[in-house]
Design a binder for these strands. Sequence first.
DNA 1: GACTTTCCTGACCTTTTTGGTCAGGAGCGC
DNA 2: GCGCTCCTGACCAAAAAGGTCAGGAAAGTC
Lengths: 151, 151
Amino acid sequence: MRVSAKADYAVRAAAELAAAEEGPVKGERLAEAQDIPLQFLEHILLELKHVGIVRARRGAKGGYWLAKPANEITIADIVRAVEGPIAHVQSDPPEMIEYRGNAEHLKEVWIAVRANLRAVLEHVTLADLVSGEMPAVVEELAASPDAWAPR
Amino acid sequence: MRVSAKADYAVRAAAELAAAEEGPVKGERLAEAQDIPLQFLEHILLELKHVGIVRARRGAKGGYWLAKPANEITIADIVRAVEGPIAHVQSDPPEMIEYRGNAEHLKEVWIAVRANLRAVLEHVTLADLVSGEMPAVVEELAASPDAWAPR
DNA sequence: GACTTTCCTGACCTTTTTGGTCAGGAGCGC
DNA sequence: GCGCTCCTGACCAAAAAGGTCAGGAAAGTC
């Protein structure tokens, strides 16, 4: 239940792209802006390109840019691109698992977990992230001091 | 963002313990009931014992039982015991991370993610799990057909 | 057309995690 | 003392995490 460096990097790089008005941004600039190892970042950007989130051009004046408007790309899209499906259990989606005996209702718990993850990840767009104006769900969750407490 | 086999096993074994009225349950019985490799399960139960969720006695008539009433143990307790902290980013808790540039508000997103994970995991107890009567949060989330759809 | 720039790709690498197994020891009950 | 069951550490193989390296291929510039 943790967020990998790769996913974190991917979102941060995408945020930079979302903020860049006009023209392609070099990988190197993204790497510097977010302090990400360049060569690792290039692999990540390639993955984002393969799933159609990002586009790129080589050569001088080349670089990366978003394939779609920033308000049409969610954090979930990016996380799925680099980490695969969200909230799988033992590499299977929760709805596919059959639990036995007294664990029968565990399925619903994992379903709820996934639903609540989606409730955040699928509603925050890159545009939201860059502007800092989060959807209501996030505002409410982040407003509680409890959410900021370690445990 | 996935649930490990270990966490899944741990919760299932704990559910069996919660359901077992009276007396210690042998590891072997738990392993059979939930189809978990016995030796692996023993290691898991040991971890649960170390954090005070489970108690055990050896010898004939020995076995495992819950250290506390089933309605005082949450899924979060168990997941933390075997997987460590929930929703860490790059092995750091979200509130400790400083984001730069256009990713500045990413922190709030991860905080919200964690909060929503907690909203489920910390509110479902073992008693809820075996009885099948989930807290309202889970009922509502699991009620939506959308929550059951892959993506 | 040569040269530079920047992306593209696959191979490789180390460390950690995951998901186990194995062998033996230690305590409990009879 | 004997059998049962937990307890513990060592070990192991495969995968994932987090990168690095080397070279190739397109695009633009002179």
